[in-house]
């Protein structure tokens, strides 16, 4: 239950399930396929549909960041619920990616920054 949308060199990944060790392998594989499918410069995670995430999600986001960073790409996130945001804050994920109000804001800022 992960939706993908391409907009130019931006890939928007909307996850619609709980992120744990059980679900994250499939999510990772799909995202990596989508990133490589086109020349993706900006990856935006839309977490509007994520009500639960544990440390497996930290590894998932960090791993995608490393892949994007290798090709000088950027990663951003929108739609963090308070409980999920707590995990992002604790794990220092905001040091490697920015949070925006919505996908439109993220697109504007990330594409301009590059």
């Amino acid at each position: 239950m992960t939706d993908f949308k391409f907009n130019g060199s931006t890939l928007i990944v909307k996850i619609n399930e709980e992120i744990d060790h059980h679900t994250c392998d499939l999510i990772k594989n799909k995202i990596d396929l989508a990133i490589n499918f086109r020349n993706t410069k900006h990856l935006i995670f839309d977490f509007t549909g994520v009500n639960f995430m544990d440390s497996s999600g930290i590894g998932m986001v960090m791993g995608r960041y490393k892949n994007m960073h290798k090709n000088h790409g950027t990663v951003a996130v929108v739609g963090l619920k308070p409980t999920v945001k707590k995990i992002f804050t604790m794990s220092g994920l905001f040091k490697i990616l920015s949070e925006y109000k919505n996908v439109e804001e993220a697109m504007k800022s990330e594409v301009k920054m590059a």
């Binding site: 440390s55 497996s56 930290i58 791993g63």
Partner: peptide, 14 residues
């Protein structure tokens, strides 16, 4: 290598 972050115990603790 499994993309684990090593944050599990820290999360449980906090």
């Amino acid at each position: 290598q499994l993309e684990r972050s090593g944050m599990g115990f820290t999360i449980m603790e906090s």
